[in-house]
Design a binder for these strands. Structure first.
Lengths: 133, 133
DNA sequence: GTTCGTGCAAACGGTTTGCAACAAT
DNA sequence: ATTGTTGCAAACCGTTTGCACGAAC
């Protein structure tokens, strides 16, 4: 597990320090879409001496190196997403929780109609409530 | 013009003070997707004595009353959008500029496949470059 | 011993808030 | 007189930065 993470970091050209491994171990495997502060909270529970600055530096480095994506879809915070494939997001309006919607679950058509734009990436952002039965 | 705006504010249950009318006159007619600071810059050029706090309070009030939408799609800033209809956004990766994509230009299908979710709203966020010819 | 990563604390920038003054009715 | 609105400045919060210490090779 730790070895897998170290391999991944190396593959992305990131020197695997102990802190970076700890951050990667959490952020690459979570289903959540954590903010920097959530990462800090989680990681420092098994790695108590890590500082906030290191969390921010590390996450930004990961984004730079293409290991993570930053999402700017919710109010007031940036969240991180280890899923690099094309996919979409559902935001629960009550809890603010973000859930992945896999790319094949939704289809966006007519993209070709956008003459004059070179689309490098797109996503659908959905908002709503979770139905209770 | 000013009268139209006053009528709109009244319709939305907003008392039309001079400052609010000035903000509304700009923000309801612009094609841009301005941040609070851009609104401040524009509005204070014809209304020099308005304060930043009033801009923020006013914009937040407008959002609360349903006259504007807040968009959280770009890095580091919240922008406001007077277009209340379902539509999508293109973000120019070079300039950061946001352009409307009208609702009928893109189609999202399979929404019905999302069992268990009650979608109240959705939008497609596209990123890319403007083709130069 | 040079390079790179970390931790701290201060700085930063956008946004909000508390409060006193003011306008409207 | 009461109610609601504004302006100021300070507070706030998430994030970045400068710098000195420490680890690794």
């Amino acid at each position: 597990m730790k070895d897998d993470v170290i391999k991944i970091l190396n593959d992305y050209g990131i020197q695997p320090s102990a802190q970076r491994v700890a951050v990667a171990e959490y952020v690459l495997t979570t289903e959540e879409h954590p903010s920097a502060d959530q990462v800090f909270a989680k990681v420092s529970s098994n790695f108590p001496m890590i500082s906030r600055a290191t969390i921010y530096n590390t996450l930004n480095l990961f984004v730079e190196k293409g290991l993570l994506r930053e999402l700017h879809i919710a109010a007031g915070r940036v969240v991180f997403d280890p899923n690099l494939q094309r996919h979409h997001h559902f935001i629960d309006e009550e809890s603010g929780e973000i859930t992945d919607i896999h790319g094949h679950q939704l289809e966006v058509s007519n993209l070709a109609s956008l003459k004059g734009l070179e689309i490098s990436d797109y996503q659908v952002v959905l908002r709503g409530k979770i139905k209770k039965k």
